[in-house]
Amino acid sequence: MAVTASGVFRRTAIERADQRVSWERTDQAFFSSGACHVLAWTCRDFYPDQGIALAALYLGDFEHPLHVYARWGRWVFDASGWNLESELLQANSDFEGLPVREVETIRTDLREFCEKHVHRQPHQYWADPTERARAYVARYNPPWL
Rank of each mutant, 00 (worst) to 15 (best):
Q121G: 00
N92C: 14
E131Y: 11
D27G: 02
Y47S: 10
A53C: 08
A5I: 07
R25K: 10
R74D: 09
R20I: 01
C36Y: 12
L84W: 11
S80M: 12
L110I: 14
P129K: 07
P65Q: 04
V38S: 00
A70G: 04
A29W: 04
Q124F: 01
G34L: 12
A35C: 03
H64Q: 14
S86V: 10
F113S: 02
L59H: 02
T12G: 07
R20H: 15
E102W: 10
D27R: 09
W82T: 05
T26V: 02
W41F: 12
P122L: 07
A13Q: 15
F31T: 07
H119N: 09
E102H: 13
F113Y: 08
P142E: 03
W23A: 01
A13Y: 07
F31L: 02
R20F: 05
E63Y: 13
R120C: 03
E96P: 03
S6W: 15
V21C: 00
V8M: 08
R25L: 03
W41Y: 06
G97I: 05
S6E: 09
G51Y: 11
L66W: 09
V100Y: 05
I52L: 01
E102M: 06
A35F: 01
E104G: 05
L84N: 05
N141T: 10
Y140I: 07
V3M: 11
W23L: 00
F95S: 14
N92S: 08
V103K: 06
Q50R: 12
A55T: 14
G81C: 06
W126L: 01
W144K: 04
E63G: 04
A127T: 10
A127W: 11
W144V: 03
F9S: 11
E102Q: 13
T4E: 15
S32M: 05
Y47W: 14
G97N: 08
V103G: 07
T26A: 00
G73E: 01
L98M: 15
V3N: 11
F46C: 06
N141H: 13
L145Q: 14
W144P: 08
I106H: 02
A138G: 08
A70L: 06
A55F: 05
A13H: 10
E87A: 06
V137M: 03
A35Y: 09
V100T: 11
L88G: 02
D18Y: 15
C114P: 02
A55R: 14
E104L: 13
E112H: 08
S86D: 04
E96M: 15
G34S: 01
F9E: 03
T130N: 00
D109M: 01
A70E: 04
N83C: 14
C36S: 04
R111A: 14
D128S: 08
Y69C: 03
L54A: 12
A29L: 00
G97P: 11
F113K: 11
A2C: 09
T105L: 11
L54E: 05
L145T: 12
E15V: 13
V3I: 14
L84E: 09
W126H: 06
G81V: 06
A53S: 07
R71T: 15
E63H: 09
R139V: 01
T130V: 13
A138C: 03
E15Q: 15
V76N: 01
I106L: 06
A17Y: 05
R107H: 07
V100S: 10
V38Y: 00
G81N: 01
G81F: 04
E85Q: 07
